[in-house]
């Protein structure tokens, strides 16, 4: 049950980097989500347009938003973990 590789809660040198990347990814996702809401609201008929594999734009865009959230989450975690390992380990080594 214990997570031994956890970053200690004391000081996280990667916090600024993670916050910046998080904000950028949030901005990108919000823009795409806003586009989805905009088309659904003002041009719902466009959502009938066939896109790929027989799926219309409505289903394609919806699935895309769900899958995009998963992919962005994994990418975000990859870079955050990399930066945490680099900065927080460097910090510990410097102390030694």
């Amino acid at each position: 049950m214990q997570q031994h590789e956890a970053v200690e809660l004391g000081e996280d040198k990667a916090a600024k980097f993670k916050s910046k990347v998080g904000l950028i990814l949030f901005g990108v996702y919000s823009f795409i989500y806003a586009g989805f809401v905009f088309v659904n609201t003002w041009s719902p008929k466009i959502m009938e347009t066939k896109i790929i594999l027989g799926l219309n734009l409505a289903v394609f865009y919806g699935f895309f938003l769900i899958i995009l959230a998963i992919v962005m989450g994994i990418v975000y975690n990859h870079y955050c973990t990399k930066m945490e390992n680099k900065l927080n380990v460097d910090e510990e080594e410097n102390k030694e």
Binding site: G22, L23, L25, F26, Y29, S30, Y33, F36, N40, M47, A58, V59, G62, L65, I66, A69, M72, G73, Y76
Partner: peptide, 21 residues
Amino acid sequence: GYDGFLYSIGYLAGWVVALFL
């Protein structure tokens, strides 16, 4: 139909806010 699925999309998208911010 699809209108119910809009709830699914909105509920899921909320997790992006939770993760990134």
